[in-house]
Nucleic acid binder design. Structure first.
Lengths: 142, 142
DNA sequence: TCCCATATCTTAGTTTCCTAAGTAATTCTA
DNA sequence: TAGAATTACTTAGGAAACTAAGATATGGGA
């Protein structure tokens, strides 16, 4: 099969599909989806108020996608959404006790995934890799 | 907002989302989706028989996803699926006359996208970028 | 040769994305 | 300061991915 000339778009999409499937296979998948797991991971690392728009930015997803994600996480008892006094448009995302109990597992899972992914790749090459992705995102000006 | 330590998984997912949205915005989107467009682009480049499994491999999608994609393309009059004499499990994907009329547009769109994406990135860095992605896909052993 | 494993594609049902449109609050500006 | 623009989130409906479970067809031993 003659594959097309190497295409960055195709490579990224292909790797992204593989990653999504791997994320969904993580051990903690019993209680929540891969997407919810990585969001939990992000929330656990925050020290300031987090809002839906921060999740949107972190993963480049649309507001409607974030609304659905957070709705499911709330339904699963992982978060609460509460208004803040200084801006009534915002809903602060608060982790529940239940969510905190997954901390160790989630951190371990995500760390393992990253470790697996980058195994055998030099720091120099990884630096360039991240730089190229940043430049590409910039080029798409989204 | 404190973003997590740079994460290859997150970077790839984020860029992939941006790319998907860009692909869906291409001019030819009037007649078919971005996903159908890139598949058409792939098919146009082939000189030998192409089967569903080749599409699955090219984009790392599951059989059920490919079935749905090709069903829609057939419905849109872009392809036909016909059996081959030497193996009754296979269905050869054949481009229609209608599909061939999109050749120039599709090639131009996909070339532009790739050009936009890689603008301002050196050949050396791109080589490393592709190498890193290949290594990552290998690490996921999918 | 017969059966078991493998390969290819399909169907059913779900999740995760999307666009488009809408609500409500805030901020900007004429 | 009233109206317009922007920001944050939601809803509705659709597209693109998934898993799981099939239906057939092929190929490889015992």
């Amino acid at each position: 099969m003659t594959s097309l000339t190497r295409s960055a778009a195709r490579y990224v999409s292909k790797l992204s599909n593989k990653l999504r499937r791997r994320l969904d296979m993580l051990s903690s998948r019993k209680e929540f989806s891969g997407s919810q797991g990585r969001t939990l991971h992000f929330l656990l690392a925050q020290t300031q108020d987090v809002f839906q728009k921060d999740i949107e930015e972190e993963y480049s997803i649309r507001p409607s996608t974030a609304t659905e994600l957070l709705k499911q996480m709330e339904k699963n008892g992982l978060i609460l959404r509460e208004t803040v006094p200084y801006d009534n448009r915002l809903k602060r995302i608060v982790l529940t006790e239940k969510a905190l109990q997954y901390r160790q597992q989630v951190v371990e899972d995500l760390t393992d995934l990253e470790e697996t992914l980058t195994r055998g790749i030099s720091e120099e090459d990884l630096d360039i890799f991240f730089g190229v992705i940043e430049k590409m995102m910039d080029n798409l000006a989204d």
